[in-house]
């Protein structure tokens, strides 16, 4: 008996036996944005992400990010804060006296956290998108389980187009794509009940992005 694999591959091969190969469509996607200046990138990123319910903050440096995060904590009444393993996250949370919880293996505790703080490896101006590479940071669950996600993004990580970020991701895991590339454009949402938009159905209800290094 032939295996299902051989049978399916064989059926596809036979079906295409007399079909000429279509020409290659390799090449850059149309509608790629031209290179924008740093200021244009920040402006566009903010407009796109805020358009879908995210909040974008700009601060000068890590110390200012810590002050802002402290204010957000007080306003939101957060007590339990989950953090990723990025040094920048430790620096900023430590800077405002947050003792972050860094233990993805204890999912029940992570699940009970009020907020998760991570960075993103890229931010895409074109679409207002955060790009998270699993090979670069331990943020798979920290960015997902708590009801609030705060992402710290150094300004030099803001790229113009989706293609720029995807191009980097393509080889980020030792020449391959890493096990997981996550693109995040706004909070979790659903319109499944009478098309009424509801935030935070399964993932975070609130998404804050703190851009660090803005010339403000």
């Amino acid at each position: 008996m032939t295996s299902a694999r051989e049978a399916v591959l064989g059926a596809v091969r036979r079906a295409l036996d007399k079909v000429p190969a279509a020409p290659t469509a390799a090449g850059p996607s149309p509608a790629r944005p031209d290179d924008w200046t740093a200021a244009e990138r920040v402006e566009r990123f903010r407009a796109k992400l805020e358009g879908v319910g995210g909040v974008v903050h700009e601060v000068a440096d890590a110390a200012a990010a810590a002050t802002l995060l402290g204010e957000l904590r007080d306003a939101g009444g957060w007590s339990e804060v989950a953090i990723s393993d990025e040094p920048l996250v430790a620096e900023v949370t430590g800077g405002c006296g947050i003792e972050g919880f860094d233990g993805g293996s204890d999912r029940t505790r992570l699940e009970a956290c009020d907020v998760g703080v991570t960075t993103a490896q890229f931010a895409v101006a074109e679409t207002g998108t955060l790009v998270l590479l699993s090979s670069a940071e331990r943020h798979r669950l920290t960015s997902l389980l708590p009801p609030v996600h705060v992402a710290l993004v150094p300004l030099e990580r803001v790229v113009t187009g989706l293609g720029d970020a995807l191009g980097h991701a393509r080889t980020a895991g030792d020449g391959s794509p890493p096990p997981l590339v996550t693109l995040i454009t706004g909070p979790s949402r659903t319109g499944d009940i009478e098309l009424q938009m509801v935030m935070g159905v399964h993932g975070p209800r609130d998404l804050h992005v703190i851009l660090i290094g803005a010339a403000s």
Partner: peptide, 28 residues
């Protein structure tokens, strides 16, 4: 599909977690 410029999330999977990663499935 939904008239969005991008949906909230895209996940691109390439195999199970690689050491030192300790999140995500053991098998894909």
């Amino acid at each position: 599909g939904t008239g969005q410029h991008l949906t909230s999330y895209q996940s691109i999977f390439t195999g199970p977690k690689q050491s030192p990663e300790d999140e995500g499935p053991d098998e894909v």
